[in-house]
Amino acid sequence: MIFDISKVFSRIPAILRYLPVTMELVIVSTVFSLILGFLIAVIKIRRIPVLRQLAAFYVSFSRGTPAIVQLYLFFYGFPLIFSLINRHYGTSLPTVAPSMLTALVAFTFSEASYSSETIRAALGSVDRGQMEAALSIGMTQRQAYLRIILPEALVFALPPFGNAFIGQIKNTSLAFTCAVVEMTAGAKLLASHDYRFFESYVSLAIIYWILIIITSHLLSLAEKKLKRDERIVPHDFADRQAA
């Protein structure tokens, strides 16, 4: 048989066993890239000297090189640095890069540069008057940020964050280059047993596609929830309010 459609279906559950690895890569790197991105955004907004130049250099490099090249740099760079440290200090750090950790660090770094720009733009999008109003009723800067500014910025940032998250799901397929067996690597391994590569990759494509459809749907639900002022007010709303 040239194309075995039944293989496509039977392979889906087998590949899905690697879904947790993919999700771990996506979620952990997204969380850390948001934290790092927020710090960089604050450095840029506050114009902290030295750190600001470092941040600009990092963002420029990270956005100017492909994710796969960054993965290689971390994968082959870590052992080099570790063996240098071992030689100088007599430590015994591993000289083979731990693959999962390498992938997480690399994805975090490549993603944080984008999220820092999103966060900066989102904070900048909030009308200055909102901060002034908060301060004018006696709130502290911190209270104003937590209660007024950040929730408003989040509404602005959610669509780009969502796009980045979806991009990140697809990016994790690069992790096989540093020996992490996630869904793509899993599909490849499974195919190497029966040489049904095409069927295996069709299953893989279907899984990614469905995963991203579900994610987009959840994101648009979240967006609707955040934009709570853009609702349709029923006609008798005011009257029920008064009652």
Binding site: D127, G129, Q130, E132, A133, A134, L135, S136, I137, G138, T140, I148, P151, E152, V155, L226, R228, D229
Partner: peptide, 20 residues
């Protein structure tokens, strides 16, 4: 500064109500 802000209140030309 805190005393001034918490014992005065301001009404702005552009209202500046909290959006959400």
């Amino acid at each position: 500064i805190r005393y001034m802000r918490s014992h005065t209140a301001m009404v702005f030309q552009q209202f500046n109500l909290f959006k959400y």
